[in-house]
Design a protein around this nucleic acid. Structure first.
Ligand SMILES: [Mn+2]
Ligand SMILES: [Mn+2]
Length: 305
DNA sequence: GTGTGCC
DNA sequence: GGCACACAACGCTGG
DNA sequence: CCAGCG
């Protein structure tokens, strides 16, 4: 009656239950599991070797969900754990095969978050992320800010990649060589965001307090810390229609019709059929921030005149 | 969603 | 077997 | 310390 089946993914047997249960209006748990199985080859390079955190919704996105950081003791031994923590040690789950993703989806994991650092050097991020959050559903303002932030970052001789978050905004990602720790990377990010914000005070803010943001884009640099996380590329979001966080090209962002929740567990495969993952090479382009910091200093100095 | 303790 | 129940986050920021 | 935030 409870609709159990066993399946094999790679070398692992996994029991799947309640495949017909709706986790989103009109979208079943079976469809979620199928998505993670199918996206695995493209997604795994982005989450491999990173501590993962999850948002789980066993009774669907319109019921109560919860966050999970500590990997449950009941996980099979083939799911690797990454022990990390600021105060107490948490054994984070990790994923290096499609079987891991299928197992997580069976547990009603809908959203996957990752650290911006890999497990072998957990205090030194290989990505710097600027999270651009619009006050309402004004994506036009987000696009403009993203393009100008990219120009600023490229002016500092850095690379900048973009993904739609699948909810309301975008993430800009700057690949790093891991020579700086989170403390240094975060203060660099704060200075870049601050410089941009002072140039565009009516369109953007760096205020955490929602009350102080007004009708402006929040440039959020607070993901760039040890044990903080950002939604993973190709993660599903817990929203109607099962949208996904989608890496896109800068050309695609400029498209007049683009929307932040444009891609979902079905149509993301049409996009990937027509072109490769735009982030496929991101980790080959990690750069140091040392020289960028010098260039940033010059820009800050020339503000004063 | 899953492991446990208990009738 | 089947039911009730517990349990599944945390670190940073500004005031 | 606490409330707010993601
Ligand atoms: Mn955001
Ligand atoms: Mn900071």
């Amino acid at each position: 009656m409870s609709n159990k089946i066993k399946t094999t993914v790679g070398s692992h047997r996994i029991e799947l239950t309640n495949l017909e249960k709706a986790l989103f209006p009109g979208i079943s748990k079976g469809e979620l599991i199928r998505y993670y199985l199918k996206i695995a080859p493209v997604m795994l390079p982005h989450i491999k070797d990173r501590p993962l955190s999850f948002q789980r919704f066993p009774d669907g996105i319109n019921a109560e969900g919860f966050y999970q950081k500590q990997a449950p003791s009941a996980y099979p031994e083939w799911i690797k754990r990454i022990p990390l923590g600021v105060k107490d040690i948490v054994d984070y789950a990790s994923a290096d095969s499609a079987a891991d993703l299928v197992y997580f989806a069976q547990q009603a994991v809908i959203v996957i978050h990752t650290s911006l650092a890999r497990a072998d050097k957990p205090h030194n991020p290989d990505l710097l992320v600027f999270d651009l959050d619009p006050p309402a559903d004004d994506f036009g303002m987000v696009k403009k800010t993203a393009l100008q932030m990219r120009a600023l970052l490229e002016g500092l001789d850095l690379k900048c990649y973009v993904k739609l978050t699948g909810s309301r905004g975008v993430h800009l990602a700057v690949p790093l060589d891991r020579s700086w720790d989170f403390g240094l990377v975060n203060s660099f990010a704060d200075r870049v965001a601050g410089l941009y914000q002072r140039k565009h005070p009516d369109e953007t803010t760096v205020e955490i307090s929602k009350a102080k943001r007004g009708n402006r884009i929040f440039i959020d640099t607070n993901r760039n810390h040890f044990a903080q996380t950002a939604v993973a590329p190709y993660s599903v979001r817990a929203r109607e229609g099962a949208p996904v966080a989608a890496p896109i090209t800068w050309g695609e962002l400029s498209n007049a019709d683009i929307k932040p929740a444009q891609f979902n567990i079905e149509n993301i495969f049409d996009l990937l059929a027509n072109r490769a993952d735009p982030w496929a090479d991101i980790y080959r382009h990690g750069l140091p921030l040392k020289r960028a910091e010098g260039l940033l200093q010059s820009l800050e100095n020339s503000e004063k005149s």
